[in-house]
Design a binder for these strands. Sequence first.
DNA 1: AATGCAATTGCAAATCGTTTGCAATAAGAA
DNA 2: TTCTTATTGCAAACGATTTGCAATTGCATT
Lengths: 143, 143
Amino acid sequence: MTNPTADRRDYEEELRQAGVRITRPRRIILGILSETEDHPDALEIFRRAVALDSSISLSTVYRTMKLLETIGAIRRHAFEGGPSRFEQASGAHHDHLIDIDTGDVVEFRSDRIEKLQDEVARALGYEIVHHRLELYGRKLRAK
Amino acid sequence: MTNPTADRRDYEEELRQAGVRITRPRRIILGILSETEDHPDALEIFRRAVALDSSISLSTVYRTMKLLETIGAIRRHAFEGGPSRFEQASGAHHDHLIDIDTGDVVEFRSDRIEKLQDEVARALGYEIVHHRLELYGRKLRAK
DNA sequence: AATGCAATTGCAAATCGTTTGCAATAAGAA
DNA sequence: TTCTTATTGCAAACGATTTGCAATTGCATT
């Protein structure tokens, strides 16, 4: 399924903007990222990429992810245990709830929590540059 | 400086409880952990240990940290970027504010945030098993 | 369409933090 | 003290990620 609601990013334009070349591997990886709803890791992206062009290498995936991260097109998350997982940087900031049984990631946003974080930090004499809030949970049995 | 306020843990008793031997390397590492106010990583603990007994190995430090973690005596934190850092598991739950300039860790606790987390999770059909909240910030210039 | 050169690639080897196999050692019950 | 087994130090393996390098490719230029 393609992304119905969200902004379909024009990654190629972003690359051009950043002054980097639009190569075949990049085009393929970017295509995968535009399609994806989940939070795949580098290896998963590599697998999907190889399915489209068997010559793509894992290093290129890593390099491309790093590139996209530095130009701000994607975000990297290091959830507990596993490897880094990626998501489009589009849309508003949000935090994550990770299903500890399935690894599924649910995005959420709480302005009230954000506000309290700021208050806490300020009270300690700090200003927040960024934060990480991850809830690790288990699905409630629908009663 | 030794830990003035907090409960000085009887690690040795905990080990005995867990049915493991109290060895010389363990005694030394435990001593370091009891003294420490900060959140050292394995290498730092290793350095401090070697100063007391040059025969201690890094693997033993790692093994001991893992052991203490499984018996619940210490907690491991994987802050952004760096290696795992450890702290005593004594005292109430708290979250962390990391000074991005110095690496210093400030502990804090907000029941209001915790409460909101529970609400968010429940609204999404989940129950929280544990969470991770890390604020990365910079000291405010005292005005 | 052909040229040239720097950016990018694939590959293999290196890296970092951490774990593990193994033979030697030491804890602590008998 | 003896015995059995857990624990150790060492070196080698590990998984995720990064890197050096020579070969390739994008693409601005003719």
